[in-house]
Amino acid sequence: MEYLVQLVISGLAIGAIYGLIAMGFAVIYKSTGLVNFAQGEMTMIVAYVAWTISTSISGNVFVVAFGAILAAILLGLVIERIVIRPMLGEPVFATVMVTIGLAVILRSSINFIWDAYPHGLDLGVGRDIIRFGNIGVRTGQIAVIATLLFLLAAIWAFFRYSKFGIAMRAVAADDRTALLMGISATRVHAIAWAASSVIAGIAGVFFAISYDISPAMFQLGLKAFPATILGGLDAILGSGLGGLLIGITENLAGGYLGSGMKEVAGFVMIVVVLMIRPFGIFGERDIERV
C-alpha cells in the first residue's frame, strides 16, 4: 500500500511536469491551430539557460527564475518571428513540419552550445523532504503540482473571459475572419508562442530541480504528447489533467510491470483512448462542413 501511494505521488509530480508541457502544446494549438513539435526542446533549452545562470551569475532562486522566464519569452518570440511567422497562411501540414525541423535543430544545438553530460540544477530549494506518516514528499514535487493547478486555473480563465483570450481562440478557429474583425493575428501568434515557451520553461526548471538536465531531456516533449492527446489538443484543463493521469499510469506501469512498460505506458494509453474518442477525452469534436 505504501509502495502504491509512493508511486502515485511521484507519478503526480512527474505528471505535473508533463501536464505543464502539455499545456504549452494546448496554448499554441488553441490560438494558432498547430501542434508545436519543438515543445520538449524549448523546455530543455530554458532549463539549460537556467542552469547556466545558476552556475555563472547567481544561484539565488529568484534571479534564476526571473532569468529563465525572460529567456523563455525571448526564445518564444524569436522562434515565432523567424520560423513561424513566414509560414502564416501556409497549410497546417507545412507549418507542423517546420516545427519538427525546428525541434531537430534545437535538439542538436544543445551539444554545440553546452555539452553532452548531465548536470544538476541546485538552487538549494526543492530537495527537502516533508514526511506525511511514512510517505516522504519532496518540496519541489509539491511546488510543481501547485504551480500546475494555479496555471491551469489562470490560463483557463484567460481563454474563457479575457478579451485577448477570446481573440486568440478566434484566430485559431479562422485566421482570415479574425483578421477581418480587426484582430492582429501576428500579435496573437507571438504572445501564444511566448506564453507557451514560458510554461514549457517552468516545466523544464522544475524538472531540472527534481532530476537532472541532459541532452536527452527533449524526450519530456514526447512524453507530454500522450497527455495533450488524452486531454484533447484544444483543451487546456484536459491537457493538465491528462499529464497527471499519464504520470500516474506511467509510474504504476513502471512499478508493477517493469521499466520497459514505463516508457510506453502513455503511448499505449493514447492509442486505446483515441480508438474510443478520436478527439481526446476533453477535446471538442471537429464538425466539418463541405
Binding site: V35, F93, L222, F267, V268, V271, L274, G280, D286
Partner: peptide
C-alpha cells in the same frame, strides 16, 4: 481510420515507440 491529421501523426509516433519496446 477514425483519426485525422495531427492525431494520426501522433498515433504513428506512438506506434514506433511501442514497437521498439
Amino acid at each position: 481510420l477514425r483519426l485525422k491529421g495531427l492525431y494520426l501523426a501522433i498515433t504513428t509516433l506512438a506506434f514506433s515507440f511501442i514497437i521498439n519496446t
